[in-house]
Amino acid sequence: MLEDAYNERKSAMLRSRGWSTRIVPLTGYGSESQLRVFARVIMTRGEQDDPEEPTHAARLRAVELETRGWRAFLTTPAIDEVVTIRINERITTARTDRGGFIDLTVRGHGLTPGWHRIFVGSPNAQTIDVPVLVIGNDVTHGIVSDIDDTVLSTSLPRPMIAAWNTFLRSEGARKAVPGMATMYRELLAEHPEAPVIYLSTGAWNTSPWLTRFLRRNGYPKGPMLLTDWGPTNTGWFRSGQEHKHAQLHRLARELPHVKWLLIGDDGQHDPKIYTEFTSRKPGHVRGIAIRELSPGEQVLSHVIPVANDDLVPAPTEELDVPVVRAPDGYGLAPQVRAIWASDPADGPSAPGVSRG
């Protein structure tokens, strides 16, 4: 591909000029038996640690500066770079792909349930610690959350506005959807061991930006499952729906004991995607919560002032799990709490919660 050839030539040129590489940490997750490790390696002018700060803090600050706004999409990936992953005393190696990413499954990692730090390095980059979440075998509750228009108010699908938001504005200019962060924190207060997985069609390039946004607005930390290129749902040579389907089915395989609360919005295809997944894997879903966009938000999302789900409704009434809707987290919270407290195997819905 032209893009691959361009990146390879640019990477070689930068190396010849003395550039090195930098590792961008991405949060991983896994079960007690296997761990999914993410990271990206990009070209950089050189590792310049601030002597006034701890080395690790300086590296993270440098990563954030290099991946803010438009810079995230102009970084040069380090292709076919050898990457070393150290988990306790175990060493595993991998090579980056065409985008400079690694997505590696490590079996028999030996970590206990909870949050850990593993170490990722390469011959031309300083080692950095990367967060990973190990989900215990006794965990039964989990949240899969969309990002755009679900936790973050955005006009992403409109190319011109998306470009403005992505390349020029900072995360501080974006707005959190009212009540969603509070709802997530309340759910985790009842089941603190429950993982929160953020599933989006956004690009991996935006991961540092999204991490800052979630942290700043009080959302629980959690792994993000993003795509390899493009800032919009219409995207550049990728299918957002296919990405979400694949990741949901992978979560079902990797964590069969977790029943997920699937949270999304009706601006794009979340009702359809979640319905199709639930129909195929009913034992893996606790319920579905859909944020309803306003007519104005629908216009920004896909030009017309009604939801895609209104035009071609997903057959949620055929599902045997609760499906709830509201315009924000404050409206969803009481309905979702009832789902969270119930067990899908119990049969009838909790009071006040409809099925389908």
Rank of each mutant, 00 (worst) to 15 (best):
S11K: 14
P123E: 07
I135D: 01
W204T: 10
R280S: 13
P123V: 10
G329I: 03
E3P: 01
G172E: 09
P113Y: 03
Y198A: 11
W204G: 01
G46R: 02
H245V: 05
P123M: 09
S153G: 09
E276A: 15
S11N: 13
I197W: 00
P123K: 08
A62R: 09
E81L: 03
S31I: 03
G356I: 01
Q126C: 02
H269M: 14
D343E: 14
S11W: 13
R15P: 00
S200D: 06
R86F: 01
Y274Q: 06
V303G: 05
D309E: 09
P113K: 12
W115I: 05
G267C: 01
S170T: 15
I118E: 02
T127N: 02
T127Y: 00
I118L: 08
A333H: 06
N165Y: 07
L262Y: 06
P295D: 09
L226T: 11
Q48V: 12
F213R: 00
D346Y: 00
Y219L: 09
L14Y: 04
T166W: 03
T75M: 05
V24D: 13
R158Y: 01
M183D: 04
E186L: 02
G114Q: 11
T140N: 09
Q48G: 08
T182H: 01
L210S: 07
K221M: 07
K259Y: 04
Y198N: 08
P25V: 10
T140K: 14
R17D: 08
S349K: 05
F213D: 06
S16Y: 00
T112G: 12
T211I: 05
K259G: 07
I161M: 03
A203G: 07
G352H: 07
A162G: 12
G331Y: 07
V106S: 13
D80L: 09
L225H: 02
E3M: 06
S153H: 11
T206G: 00
R212W: 00
A246Q: 13
S170E: 13
V82M: 10
G331I: 12
G283N: 11
D265G: 03
A314F: 06
R169W: 11
P223H: 02
R22T: 11
S170P: 05
A125S: 14
